[in-house]
Design a protein around this nucleic acid. Structure first.
Lengths: 200, 200, 200, 200
DNA sequence: ACATAACCGAGACGGTACGTCAGGTCTTGAC
DNA sequence: GTCAAGACCTGACGTACCGTCTCGGTTATGT
């Protein structure tokens, strides 16, 4: 993951190799500070100080705060939305949504997700990276839905894009607006209503 | 609307009256700059310069950029999502969503909405004002759905909160992530799928 | 004193009369704040708040902080340097200097004097008012010295201006630089050396 | 001189070296503006603009306007009052005072000195720096007087502090109050009267 | 083995905007 | 006509971070 985002930048031709230690320290410090302060209060300078890594070193490897935070978060979240495969579409969706809701119930995780979404609105460069990540999450759901189509649990002409929007949309909306809590218990209701809408 | 947000601050007891002119100039400048530059690039100093109003005067009436922008936007958007009442739940929803999608198709409007949502993630104070506004929008939909229940187009035990999330959630999600265009033509499909999900 | 500085400004022609109360409150507040905070920290706004008098009212009667402070201080200091007349030049000078040193030993008085001198350096308008006051003090010493000349204790061709500079100069210098304390006990030594210099 | 005031701040341990160019530009701009506008009208922002150096860089090296001006002036004035050594006390004093009066006759120099003295009254931190500088000037005079004592031109029990006050006091007093011009021709008279006072 | 080049720390630098403060002017309405 | 209240423009304040740029010093190759 790391490499995909920030390494493979120039062909090596001698010279000191990149310090894994500095790299880790930066990501760790970024993660810690995000949890402590929230996205906006986190600054590159703060991360530099906390991690003991020079500001210029950070700028060498990440172009912006958003990109850095993205990477700091990417590893952790890989586990969060594993692709379920229970044999039943409904159970798959329930599992998936339950996972999602559970993750977002952790305040730290919720804060990060909200900060990332905010940054994506404000920084076009970061938006691209963020969208790339989102597409990955969407693909997981797409796979589940495709299996549902194969099993004839869903109509073959289903508009996948819209369908996936119905999975993630209400979740993000509630996460971002905060008008109601994100209770993992709601995952089942969400999934049920969702399925009814998708089935012709 | 304006008054609800920033006036009624202290009862008049002598003193020069607040300049309507300055107030308007600030909101106008804020609106213009938002369209030109996008949320992040807009600064209080820029607004002050453009409007010819002193920075301190701006800070007297608005605590943050977000609050100001909120007010600048609130008036304009009041028209955008009027409550439809066609006699048919489906047509009401279609009208409502079509309006929503149409508004968001204007890049300027989309930019504003995204900026506001971002700010709400980053500034707790602003989040409150934003949520207040969002609740207003939600209430419009709630009224539509309640009429649907009265007409027995929807089950009486419908969870309104979840239902409204299904209306706004996919819309905002697509607006914020930008993985697919917000085509007003999709409003009908969205409404249809939605209704199927809501009807027991 | 007060009137000389700030009243007799416009011929009265009906209307509400000037509030003596406001006037006193301002001077009192100014005096208090000067002692509490020192010259620089005192602001017109602070005086307005403390005295309960409107800022605009203050500006109506005094053109600047310096002028106000000057007036606040003028009454009090009238007592400080009364003209001594003991019959002996030496004793007159000792009395005069002792008075001076004693006044400056009070921190509050020292602070005021230093603030006034500072303001005089920075504001030409105020400098004029300040110089007017200083000339009054100098005249007191001039009278003492003239009596000394009459009694033949001093040469008749004495340069009074230089002579008075020798009286006040070292005093102010020490007060302003603060390199050594202003001990009233030093007044005698100062007077003695002074006399020796003045006598041909 | 410069180093004593603002450099030798932290031992080099990596990091870009301080820009002599920026340093000089700031001092030059400060000097120019002082002459053009006078102490009070000079602002850090003005100096930043004139010098082309960022405000933050100025604040990095000087804590206040006074400190900066002090340094801007300190170098220039080092030459102004060199220690005279003519072999005769009287001639030494005359030379010294003539120098002093001549410097203060230049309006620019007078303005600076007055501004520095004012600032010293208003800012305790600056007062310390100013006093340090004053002590240096005093030490020059002390050396002259000590030679006078060695040559038995002055009594051995002379109170040096008071003596030096008599040298600088009347000078500063006249400079600050402005009741009479500072004519270099007066230096001789001043010195004469002074000596008479000091000699037992 | 040792030069080369990329790495890294420190931190100075020019910037931009921040949010605050006080100054001084003006307007309103009560007395 | 004076006064308290307080809105207003102005301008400077001192701070925080930004992203860039030297520095001096430290590794790992790769020849």
């Amino acid at each position: 993951m790391e490499d995909a985002v920030s390494t493979v930048r120039r062909a090596r031709a001698g010279g000191r190799t990149r310090s894994k230690q500095a790299h880790q320290a930066v990501l760790a410090a970024a993660g810690d500070l995000l949890l402590e302060l929230g996205y906006r209060q986190v600054t590159i300078e703060g991360i530099a100080e906390r991690s003991g890594v020079a500001k210029s070193t950070i700028y060498r490897w990440w172009r912006s705060k958003g990109e850095l935070v993205m990477e700091a978060y990417a590893g952790a979240t890989a586990l969060v939305v594993p692709e379920p495969d229970t044999g039943s579409l409904e159970q798959d969706l329930v599992a998936l949504l339950a996972n999602l809701y559970a993750a977002a119930s952790q305040p730290s995780c919720a804060l990060m997700l909200r900060g990332l979404m905010a940054e994506a609105q404000l920084d076009p460069d970061f938006a691209e990276a963020f969208q790339y990540w989102v597409r990955g999450r969407r693909e997981v759901v797409a796979a589940v839905l495709r299996r549902g189509i194969q099993r004839a649990e869903l109509p073959p002409n289903l508009d996948l894009t819209h369908a996936i929007d119905l999975v993630f949309g209400p979740f993000w909306y509630r996460l971002l607006v905060g008008h109601a809590p994100l209770d993992p218990a709601d995952a089942t209701a969400h999934a049920t209503r969702l399925l009814r809408g998708l089935r012709g």
